[in-house]
């Protein structure tokens, strides 16, 4: 009997869409019962959202003041205690899940299946390695608890017409004081969130300066898109680090991805391989991005972008 506990990601007031994608992944395991765990100072609003997710049987909350912020060392022992009656514990492969889930796995004495991209059975999954250059089938031991993170770009969000019961839980877990949350600096932006946006415009090193990225912002704002970037553009200081798309940044699956001045290194491409339509604009016709682009345009971005922004 497969019983899956999904660790909800949230900001204290609303649920991150990554949680609904974990539910879809878990639903791919035949006969699984799916519960969602919300750790928060005040779980009410997030729990109510989680209870609506299709496929969820029960939402469990653990409310403590220490859970006001997602500190892995504080959450992990509580998750371990809450997971006692479950066969599987899933979290999203976002920076939240990547931080806390391996800590949970280690406390349980098991390894973790990272970045599930397909379910082949209750203990058999596909996951990408080498920046997506290979897909490996992994088999986790059946006798042990299974801890995994879900590659959210591989899944659609679960629908919102469920009505699961919500239950408060108190667990006996020792909460460490050695790790203290200080603050988080969130880039203020009216643009859509990069990880969930339907459209993304992304810039590479060829933008050549922070100021020139205004061309990318202008196009993004015209079509209501989020803004992304390559590692090279971030390293060069043209744009903030949370916009990085790829192996070591965000893995995204928008309907439309417009790659501007991006050559198409494998480390970047692994972050966009699930995009619906990829448009590439690059002056180098040999750029590898054209091998994966659905629509390619060889041209100078400094003339193409303004023209595109004006006429779209």
């Amino acid at each position: 009997m497969t019983k899956i506990l999904i660790i909800a990601e949230h900001d204290g007031s609303s649920m991150n869409p990554s949680t609904a994608k974990c539910v879809t992944c878990a639903s791919g395991i035949d006969g699984a019962t799916i519960d969602v765990l919300v750790l928060a100072a005040d779980a009410g609003a997030v729990a109510a959202e989680a209870a609506k997710l299709n496929g969820v049987s029960r939402v469990v909350t653990i409310e403590r003041d220490e859970n006001a912020q997602p500190v892995a060392a504080i959450l992990a022992p509580q998750i371990v205690a809450a997971a006692a009656d479950y066969t599987h514990v899933f979290g999203p492969s976002t920076t939240f899940g990547k931080d806390v889930m391996p800590r949970v796995a280690a406390l349980l004495g098991v390894n973790q299946v990272s970045d599930i991209m397909a379910v082949n059975g209750s203990h058999t999954f596909h996951r990408p390695i080498y920046a997506g250059s290979a897909v490996v089938t992994v088999q986790a031991p059946a006798g042990a608890k299974l801890v995994a993170t879900v590659r959210t770009a591989s899944y659609q969000s679960a629908a919102n017409d469920g009505s699961a019961a919500i239950e408060a839980l108190t667990v006996d877990a020792e909460i460490p004081t050695h790790t203290r949350f200080v603050g988080v600096e969130v880039s203020e932006s009216d643009r859509p969130d990069l990880q969930t946006a339907a459209k993304v415009v992304s810039g590479g090193r060829a933008l050549a300066s922070e100021e020139n990225f205004d061309l990318v912002y202008a196009l993004a704002d015209k079509i209501g898109a989020a803004v992304g970037a390559t590692r090279a553009a971030v390293d060069a200081g043209y744009i903030a680090s949370e916009t990085q798309v790829g192996q070591t940044g965000k893995i995204i699956a928008p309907e439309l991805y417009i790659a501007v001045g991006i050559s198409g290194a494998i480390q970047h491409l692994t972050g966009i391989k699930d995009a619906g339509t990829i448009v590439a604009i690059n002056k180098d016709e040999e750029a590898p991005i054209f091998e994966v682009a659905d629509i390619g345009l060889v041209g100078d971005l400094f003339t193409v972008l303004p023209e595109l922004t004006e006429n779209l």
Partner: peptide, 9 residues
């Protein structure tokens, strides 16, 4: 470096 921006602990 977290998804939302820069977190300090």
């Amino acid at each position: 470096e977290v998804d939302a921006g820069l977190e300090t602990i």
